[in-house]
Design a protein around this nucleic acid. Sequence first.
DNA 1: TGGAAAGATGATTTTTTTATCAAGATATTG
DNA 2: CAATATCTTGATAAAAAAATCATCTTTCCA
Lengths: 144, 144
Amino acid sequence: MLTTTSEYAIRALVYIAQQGEDEPVLAREIATNTGVPGNYISKILRDLAHGGILTSTRGVGGGFKLARPAKQIKLGDIVTPFENVAHRNRCPFGNDVCSDDHPCGAHTHYKTVKNAYNKFLDKTTLQAVAQSQLRGPKKTRKKK
Amino acid sequence: MLTTTSEYAIRALVYIAQQGEDEPVLAREIATNTGVPGNYISKILRDLAHGGILTSTRGVGGGFKLARPAKQIKLGDIVTPFENVAHRNRCPFGNDVCSDDHPCGAHTHYKTVKNAYNKFLDKTTLQAVAQSQLRGPKKTRKKK
DNA sequence: TGGAAAGATGATTTTTTTATCAAGATATTG
DNA sequence: CAATATCTTGATAAAAAAATCATCTTTCCA
């Protein structure tokens, strides 16, 4: 569903979001705590910085910070630099146009999946994910 | 969403389903009519045959036929030989367990996407796709 | 001002996916 | 039984994705 790279990007940003907004977070630290290969995360972070999601500072005390509040970052913003949106929404039958008016055979069925996915990316904020990640397992009384 | 290979498999089976149940369909013919690379479709067809979705016969008059009626084939049956189901349902945070009881931060949000996708694969029959593909654009009066 | 701490960058490698090629095995038909 | 049509198989190649490596630049601070 999500590509490996997109997943890594989300994990990294969630981690950063959880560290508070004061100090920049080190690439190395992100790698260690998210289980993403160190060198690879550097590229991803750089791309995210280029994309305006992160800001980076070098030297001692440097690292990565969110470019804007987590509430204003959608998961879609995070993954778009790494995913081909056209490819994601393409028709599985290779039709150039595949719309409600000119549907392929799978159109009505597949549409629900695409819609769910697009909604997931468009509506879910980084903050929402970072918060519930912190809260941990659901807030019911412990079993047993 | 769907991998290229899964897409090809679905296209091929839809095409076969549309050719009626009498005569086997040639690999070559499938390739031509679905836009799938000829040599590649052969492998896919072979895998589908191994997977019990198709039967194949060689020699003159040979080709591929559905192993059972299109109504009894789910899209999930078609793509499972080509997709890693575990991978599809894995947690984007790499957690071993990621359930309603032990959710990752994205769990509730991502779940809807997974559910939609799994439902698409589990519920949609080959027949449904093959039929609506045949019917073409939706059945309203022509515009204009 | 020079050394260490960061990120930035470009080249390279590895792995996976997609695609092609060529030579087989089997069935039909005349 | 020979020729042809078909699928089968294994080797290989090309492309894309994921991962690594080495080197560079910037920044801080003693």
